[in-house]
């Protein structure tokens, strides 16, 4: 009897501990969002989003940083998406289990684990210096693109694997070649998942700072970029620079709050869009 009671108490305490850890995580997120929203919303208005910075970064807007982040992410996706889809097509449609595919998987897994700052160095040495692209949108996009390639490959692979094998067999049995089957049957049915993966990739890239530190980003430039060889301001780098450079910490901090809120809303918004699109395709899916 006593023993049973003791066991019950232990169980309750254990459950309490587990529940608490889940609760703490929930609270952490709450605190993060609370501070960013409450303090960030104060500085955000239309002008903040659409104007150039003024008075040496102490007032004005963050428009060039938003634009720069847009260019960098688009560039990265435009680069990584086709490559990732084609890699995924090999993995799901052609590959035979064995040494080759193991080697490829090791490559993908380890590329995904490379620290972002190392990508930054790689981009600096290869694109900025060796290819002479300079500190530019191009160098930054390529660096970011390589970084998210594993994400894109995995997402595309998953999407392709979800296409029922019956579709492939039916197409082949009608005398379609393998390529026709992939192009006309498999890809169109996987496109929803691939798009979702790409958008999630955009969300990741938009918040990255380390890879663009030396490849693309600049704290302050008066002109908007006019080619892929321009250096750009970027939201995440802007936040970092506002907090560590310049001579008006107080004013800069307020802007940093606003920029952080914009970045968070952007990243979470992008992820939400991805989820909405995924649900749309799931509902539309007819198998």
């Amino acid at each position: 009897m006593d023993n049973r009671k003791w066991r019950e108490i232990k169980q309750q305490m254990g459950f309490l501990a587990l529940r608490t850890s889940a609760l703490i995580i929930f609270i952490i997120l709450g605190i993060l969002l609370y501070f960013l929203f409450v303090r960030g919303i104060k500085v955000i208005n239309w002008g903040f989003l659409t104007k150039m910075p003024e008075n040496g970064m102490t007032s004005g807007g963050i428009f060039p940083a938003i634009l720069g982040t847009f260019y960098l992410t688009m560039g990265a996706i435009l680069f990584a998406l086709p490559l990732g889809i084609m890699a995924a097509i090999y993995m799901t449609e052609y590959a035979v289990q064995g040494k080759v595919i193991r080697l490829i998987r090791i490559g993908i897994s380890n590329l995904a684990s490379v620290p972002s700052i190392v990508f930054g160095l790689f981009g600096l040495a290869l694109f900025v210096n060796y290819c002479k692209f300079g500190v530019s949108i191009l160098s930054g996009s390529l660096t970011l693109g390589i970084m998210i390639l594993p994400v894109i490959i995995r997402a595309s692979e998953e999407a392709l694997l979800l296409v029922p094998n019956g579709f492939r067999e039916a197409s082949l049995a009608l005398g379609a070649t393998k390529w026709q089957t992939i192009y006309k049957i498999v890809l169109p049915n996987a496109i929803g998942g691939i798009i979702t993966g790409a958008i999630l990739g955009v969300g990741r890239v938009a918040g990255e700072t380390a890879p663009i530190l030396f490849t693309a980003a600049t704290f302050y430039t008066m002109k908007l970029p006019n080619s892929v060889f321009s250096e750009v301001m970027a939201l995440p780098y802007h936040i970092y620079a506002l907090m560590t450079e310049g001579s008006h910490p107080k004013e800069q901090k307020a802007i940093a709050y606003g920029a952080s809120l914009v970045l968070i809303v952007l990243v979470l918004g992008i992820n939400m869009i991805a989820i909405v699109i995924r649900n749309y395709y799931r509902r539309k899916k007819k198998w």
Binding site: I28, G207, Y240, M243, K253, S260, I264, V267, N271
Partner: peptide, 18 residues
């Protein structure tokens, strides 16, 4: 999932100011 999507620079900022 939301926590996973948090940009590290924003967390760093939060660490500095809070």
């Amino acid at each position: 999932e939301v926590l996973a999507g948090f940009p590290s620079v924003v967390l760093g900022f939060f660490g500095m100011v809070v």
